[in-house]
C-alpha cells in the first residue's frame, strides 16, 4: 500500500507571526513551542476539457498555527470548526550554526515517539489528530527576513504489509442520497480528523465519534473509519492514513473499511459529482512488526526539498517584511 507524502504550504502570515513570537515572547529561548496546521482535503483540478489531475496533498500553516505559542488573548480567534487542525512542534533556533548543528533525527524520533505513545496509551482514541503530529525545525534570520525551515511528518513504519483488498468510490458504494448525507456529516466533523460511520438496519448512515471504535468492534458491528484525506490520487491515500492504520492494527483489528474523505464532499465542483473522488477502501491490516530492540518503531517522513533532495528550504520575505522596501514600494 502506498501513501502520498504531505506538501507544506506556508502563508506569509505564519512567518510574520513567527518573527513576532521570536521578538516578543521567545527572545533567546529556543525550547520547543506547540504548533498547529490545517490538513486540506485532497483536490482534483481540471487540466483540459476532459482530464483531471491531482493537486499535491497539502498541509497548510498560517498565523493561527502559532496562536498557542503567542499566548495572546486570541481565544475568539480560534480557528474555524470547518477546518481540520492537527498538532505539532516547533523548534526555532537562534543562529544558522545552531540550525546546522541541531540534532534533527533526535527531534524527529521524539515526535514519532509521541505518536507511538498516543497509539499505545489510547489517547489517540479521544483525539485522533494526535496521529498526525509533525515537527518544524526553523531558523529565522530576522534582520534579512529570511527563514530556514524543514518539516517532518513522521509515519511509523511498523505496519508494512497492509493491503487494499477492495476499492470503490463513495458514491459507487453508497448511492447519491446516502453520499449526500455522508458529505454533510463530513463537513460537520472535519475538525476531528477521524470519525466513524455506522449503517443501521434501515441502511441509514450515522456519525459516531472515533473513540466508539472499541465498543463497535467488540459488539461486532459494521462501521467505516472516515478520515480527512489530503490526497486525491485514485490509488494512494494520504500520508496521515499510515499512522491511523498502525493505530487500528494496534487495536487488534484485522480488516477495516476506510473512507478517504476528499474535497468532493465539500463542494459541488467535481468531475462527476459528489463522492466520486472520495474512496471506500477495505484494508487487510496485517500485523505490526516492531523490532524487539526498540521502544518506538522506526519512522520516516522528512519533507523533501522541491529538488527531491532530503534538505531544508529557505524563504526570503524581504520584499514583504522589510519596512524600508515596503515604504519604497508604497509611494
Amino acid at each position: 500500500m502506498q501513501f502520498q507524502t504531505l506538501t507544506s504550504v506556508v502563508e506569509p502570515t505564519f512567518w510574520h507571526a513567527l518573527a513576532e513570537l521570536k521578538l516578543d515572547v521567545l527572545k533567546l529561548d529556543d525550547s520547543t513551542v506547540p504548533l498547529a496546521a490545517t490538513l486540506e482535503p485532497g483536490t482534483l483540478v481540471q487540466t483540459s476539457e476532459a482530464a483531471y489531475s491531482s493537486m499535491p496533498a497539502c498541509i497548510s500553516f498560517d498565523r493561527a498555527s502559532l496562536l498557542r505559542g503567542l499566548e495572546r488573548a486570541d481565544a475568539a480567534a480560534s480557528p474555524s470548526a470547518r477546518a481540520c487542525r492537527v498538532p505539532g512542534l516547533l523548534k526555532n533556533v537562534n543562529t544558522i550554526e545552531d540550525f546546522k548543528a541541531l540534532d534533527k533525527p533526535a527531534l524527529f524520533a521524539s515526535v514519532a515517539n509521541t505518536i507511538w505513545q498516543s497509539t499505545t496509551s489510547g489517547t489517540a482514541l479521544t483525539d485522533p489528530t494526535e496521529l498526525v503530529r509533525f515537527l518544524l525545525v526553523a531558523y529565522a534570520d530576522l534582520k534579512k527576513h529570511k527563514f530556514y525551515y524543514w518539516f517532518g511528518f513522521p509515519a511509523l513504519t511498523a505496519l508494512s504489509d497492509a493491503q487494499i483488498v477492495r476499492r470503490a468510490t463513495l458514491a459507487g458504494e453508497f448511492g447519491a442520497e446516502k453520499t449526500a448525507a455522508i458529505s454533510s456529516i463530513f463537513r460537520d466533523h472535519i475538525a476531528e480528523f477521524a470519525f466513524l460511520l455506522t449503517v443501521d438496519d434501515a441502511k441509514n448512515v450515522h456519525y459516531a465519534p472515533f473513540k466508539d471504535i472499541t465498543i463497535l468492534a467488540r459488539e461486532g458491528r459494521k462501521f467505516l473509519v472516515a478520515f480527512v484525506d489530503p490526497s486525491s490520487l485514485a490509488d494512494s491515500p494520504g500520508w496521515p492514513l499510515r499512522n491511523l492504520l498502525t493505530f487500528l492494527a494496534h487495536l487488534q483489528l484485522h480488516h477495516v473499511t476506510i473512507l478517504c474523505g476528499r474535497n468532493d464532499l465539500r463542494t459541488s465542483r467535481t468531475p462527476d459529482g459528489v463522492g466520486q473522488q472520495s474512496l471506500v477502501l477495505d484494508v487487510a491490516l496485517g500485523s505490526l512488526d516492531i523490532p524487539a530492540s526498540v521502544s518506538t518503531p522506526p519512522a520516516v517522513g522528512w519533507e523533501r526539498h522541491p529538488s527531491g533532495k532530503l534538505a531544508p528550504r529557505v524563504i526570503d520575505l524581504s520584499h514583504m517584511m522589510d519596512p524600508q522596501r515596503l515604504a519604497e514600494s508604497a509611494v
Binding site: 502506498q2 507524502t5 499535491p56 546546522k100 522528512w302 523533501r304 529538488s307 527531491g308
Partner: peptide, 21 residues
Amino acid sequence: MDDLAGGVSEAPDPAAVHAST
C-alpha cells in the same frame, strides 16, 4: 543545503508517493 541538512537520512521508502516525482 547538504550542510544544513545535518545528519538526516532516510532509506528509500517503498510506501511513499512523492508529489515532486
